[in-house]
């Protein structure tokens, strides 16, 4: 899906837990998430922590959309 969306000309960032799959399929902009059932907020942590993590990683994804890249890139996250 990512590839077809990009083929249509949209910059697209994939937020995924299984980075090797995202890479193999051919996503160009990738931001890691923390798990499969809860990509952007671990329910065993507090609501504030979940929000901080989600806000941060979505921010990284938005910055990825504005980054000129020459090659498939996995963007670094801090939390």
């Amino acid at each position: 899906m990512v590839k077809e969306i990009e083929r249509a000309g949209f910059p697209v960032v994939q937020m995924a837990n299984l980075i090797p799959v995202a890479k193999t399929v051919g996503s160009n902009r990738i931001v890691p998430t923390i798990s499969i059932p809860y990509p952007l907020g671990d329910p065993s942590t507090s609501k504030e922590e979940q929000w901080k993590l989600r806000y941060h990683r979505v921010g990284v994804a938005l910055d990825a959309l504005t980054s000129d890249i020459d090659d498939q890139t996995v963007f670094d996250v801090e939390i």
Partner: peptide, 25 residues
């Protein structure tokens, strides 16, 4: 998945969207 991706892209075009965040599980 590719077909659905193309259909969604078409809709995004009509809605004049500029960029996409796709979350996968």
């Amino acid at each position: 998945a590719a077909r659905m991706g193309r259909e969604i892209a078409q809709d995004l075009k009509e809605a004049e969207v500029q960029a996409v965040i796709l979350t996968s599980t």
